[in-house]
Design a protein around this nucleic acid. Sequence first.
DNA 1: CGAGTACTTGAAAGCCGTCAAGAAGGGTGG
DNA 2: CCACCCTTCTTGACGGCTTTCAAGTACTCG
Lengths: 240, 240
Amino acid sequence: MANRFVQKLCGLAELATDDRSAIEKATACPRRYVARQDLIREGDEPGPMFVMLEGWACRYKILPSGTRQIMAFLMPGDACDLHIKLLAEMDHSIQTLTPAMVATVSRADMQALMSGHPNVARAMYSAQLVDEGIMRAWIVSMGRRSSVERVAHLICELYLRARTIGLTGDDEFALPLSQLLLADALGMTAVHINRVLKELRLAGAMALARGSATILDPVKLIQIAGFNENYLHRRLRKAL
Amino acid sequence: MANRFVQKLCGLAELATDDRSAIEKATACPRRYVARQDLIREGDEPGPMFVMLEGWACRYKILPSGTRQIMAFLMPGDACDLHIKLLAEMDHSIQTLTPAMVATVSRADMQALMSGHPNVARAMYSAQLVDEGIMRAWIVSMGRRSSVERVAHLICELYLRARTIGLTGDDEFALPLSQLLLADALGMTAVHINRVLKELRLAGAMALARGSATILDPVKLIQIAGFNENYLHRRLRKAL
DNA sequence: CGAGTACTTGAAAGCCGTCAAGAAGGGTGG
DNA sequence: CCACCCTTCTTGACGGCTTTCAAGTACTCG
């Protein structure tokens, strides 16, 4: 069974065998979570870093009005903030969306891993830069894209992210997100998401079934989304 | 003349005199820019890290439709991405908004500075965590806040950020942003920003003049915005 | 098999964008 | 110093996208 964290980091730097085994060792004792379980809540004191090995999670915030905004999806291979221990309290919560296996790595262990394995450090920093790029892309989507474009763009992003960790079929991939979750991530209502999905399905671009998404026409979907994958930085700098 | 970068980092970690002088040395040779000048463009190969010493800048992206989305405002003391050199190309552009003094620090110099001064490293990492918190807050604003709330929230944020680097008066602070810039940052049109500002002015919450903002009623503004300053992490962890 | 959640669809209201036109302010050149 | 121009700001009218409200259907889990 592949360690998705190792797999993801391998795409971000040249990792030797002992780099990989050191990463695996640091994440060797994951804990099992059920769906809809908070890993940490807004206001909590940050603890060790979380690493998603299986299953999905999200960063979210509940507003005074009771509405929720999801700020990021975490899929297998994704790690939470590197130096989070420096902060006094969390400014958002993190919750599993599916049953999940989550490893925790203390800041000391991560420091040791990174100082002993420079290429692991490079991969971790690159992963953080990609995460920041994704946040900026979300800001762009929310600010300047229509709801149809927004949905299409998110699906393109999630498909590519899933593909880099080997979780996609040919034109289909597992997407354990309800329409309500998509709505909370895209700043829309569940009702409107439903209408947009219907429109995308009738256009022959994509279809969303319970638990999986199907890309019916990649070119059309990319065109609708105005998708440019550069912010995912799949092509990294070869040499420093 | 205060070095705003030093001033900002001092708020993020305990810095000794030699820590501060090392930072000042690394940013000793800033370059002058005029307003509306790109520091770096989407697609460019990342170079040294930028540090704003005077003046404002923004991160932005132009969409195929020609519209612009601003993803972050950079004010004096703010630094751009730490490890950006790891990426092959920029996924967005950075442009000055006012005449500015900008220092550049090579990745090697920054590495040396941080490894020789652990508390500077802590401050830099904390600054990055705050920047990420700000991005998430923008996502929340764009997704779940009305236009009035959004404008109020941004003003609250910018006021607090300006205050930590000593750039605020009692109830007023320099805000060199046109209504068009605010619109591009908040995902609205300049026309609607204008109406919202009028509403906030008539409500007695705040007023925006050319180049400066006045907080007429802090309590009311915070209440309208639903503002919680926790994401700016002004209260950091005392000890590790 | 029952209950709750998720999905679907329609109708109406409202927020915000678009279009248009004019006023105000700042900078430049004569 | 003034005239001119351009950017920015301001306001009104209209239209459209999205939300809200409501009701009904399908699906899943206990």
